[in-house]
């Protein structure tokens, strides 16, 4: 099955990004395809390379980048939401790209399921 993923909350503050990551990993392991992960609202904060968690904690940002690299997952950050929150190309973490909301709608159209992670 082909999944589109929407993440609406920022890292560490909320479990949405963690749950979405676990979901993506499990889906890939089961042979499903993650069409795209779209970061919206405060979810765009998952894409800043300035994030520096304590060493004994998970690195949510790098973890997404690694998943993208290993499984060719398209990580897309909403440009309008990102600009509002100071996420720009200069501080974008590896594996992410900035694009428009059309990418979310497009993923909804071509995926079998679009799954939202947020409140």
């Amino acid at each position: 099955m082909k999944f589109g993923i929407l993440i609406n909350e920022g890292p560490y503050n909320h479990q949405a990004s963690d749950s979405a990551y676990q979901f993506c990993k499990a889906a890939i392991e089961k042979g499903h395809e993650i069409d795209r992960v779209f970061f919206y609202h405060d979810g765009v904060n998952n894409a800043t390379k300035l994030t520096e968690p304590p060493q004994d904690d998970r690195n949510i940002v790098q973890r997404w980048g690694k998943l993208a690299e290993e499984h060719n997952v398209d990580l897309v950050v909403c440009v309008a939401a990102a600009l509002r929150r100071g996420i720009v190309e200069e501080n974008l973490a590896p594996g992410f790209r900035i694009s428009g909301l059309g990418q979310l709608v497009e993923s909804g159209i071509r995926s079998d399921r679009l799954v939202t992670f947020g409140d």
Partner: peptide, 17 residues
């Protein structure tokens, strides 16, 4: 606000969900 990037990457014309 800018909401750009609405161009389609592949042809999905006609798909209405």
């Amino acid at each position: 606000e800018s909401t750009g990037g609405i161009e389609m990457e592949e042809d999905m014309s006609g798909t209405v969900k």
